[in-house]
Design a protein around this nucleic acid. Sequence first.
RNA 1: GGGGAGAUGCCCGAGUGGCCAAUGGGAACAGACUGUAAAUCUGUCGGCGAGAGCCUUCGCAGGUUCGAAUCCUGCUCUCCCCA
Length: 400
Amino acid sequence: MTIDDQIALLKRGTTEIISEADLAEKLKLGRPLRVKLGVDPTAKDVTLGWAVVLRKLRQFQDLGHTACLIIGDFTAQIGDPSGKSKTRRQLSREEVQANVDAVKEKVFRILDPAKTEIFFNKDWLGAMTFEDVIRLCSRYTVARILERDDFTNRLAEQKPIAMHEILYPLCQGMDSVEIVADVEIGGNDQKFNNLVGRTLMSQYGQEPQVVLLCPLLVGTDGKEKMSQSLGNYISIDDAPNDMFGKTMSIPDELIENWFELCTDVPMDEVREMLAEGRNPRDAKMRLGRELVGLYHSPEAATAAQDYFVETFSRRSQPVDAEDAVIPSALVIEGEVSLAALIAALEMAESNGKAKALIKQGAVSLDGEKVEDQSARFGVDELEGKILRVGKHRFRRLVLG
RNA sequence: GGGGAGAUGCCCGAGUGGCCAAUGGGAACAGACUGUAAAUCUGUCGGCGAGAGCCUUCGCAGGUUCGAAUCCUGCUCUCCCCA
């Protein structure tokens, strides 16, 4: 593969490469490049949004390069101010560790473990003395740090900026220095941090890293960036039916972008699917199949689509549903309150919410709508029936 | 160090002694319509309870009062101006 071909491949789904010429130079070296991606273990799932940069990293691996994955176990305790208009809560060591454990395995469903080095930035950042920190701080100016959008905005909005937050970019930059990165991949919101890395590297006598930025994947709500705290995400371990269903619920405007960032389908093909006169729904179905195929299997993809069409498009009873045991504690004289059951199965947040849902006609048993918010049913009557709450929540009731 | 402003439900933001579980907007959820899209209309939106109703919320801790988100005291935190 020529350098140009490689660049063309790597360029898909990026907003900016700083700079392309430097990247070409690096690629010409003919040695495996050290490609850095820093992640803060602030959550337990790998979302499609995160998968965007992981997949980019994987592309580098496929071209023979080394992925340097930096687990920000130190920086997670500061919290990246990126895009946030408020100070982030600091995580405890225990929380960070639990997240790292949960996420590690999932990451390797995208990355090639044989070409991955994992680092924990507490190893070097945690070892710095206060004196080291001060020396580091002296290399950067307050004015330059405050150039960051979110700092500027918070300042303008008279919102607090804590001292430790302005050190975040420096920490991340030190990571690049420490591992001598050739390239750093990041979401668009990381631009500032990544550029600080370049500055620090040259101050430490290193060749500055190339920065490759990917757009932030918009979440299923079509508005905010996909994030676990906002709940607008698809996890790479969502069950096939969920993954497909959630994909179908994204706004049409997102289809093209999701294809570009989350799949390998050639963009010509995508644009053809979305051409004037074609039903965007079909493109979305294809997107759903691609995603399920990527993280499960082609067979699962077909099955998920069939399930979707059967259950939602044709509005018939779901062919299958997760089993849910009727908690024996709820059974009084052989009967169960439906609202209490819905709450206990976490299909609604509380008893009161469950009742409200019933009243609104959102609850049905085997397709039969239940309207009485204080309805009680005999356990034997419920067994084997499919309880549906709202559009997407189903459980098959079984006895314990 | 001095002076001033402020902390309300998921978010923003009204509310200055009883009519406040707390106006309004946004978000979210549900129903209708659909392609589990968008737009639109309708409803719900602290917890428990079949219901009457009960309980817990307005930064934290005390106090005044028959009664406090609203008044007083102390504390914590934030912002602005001056030094």
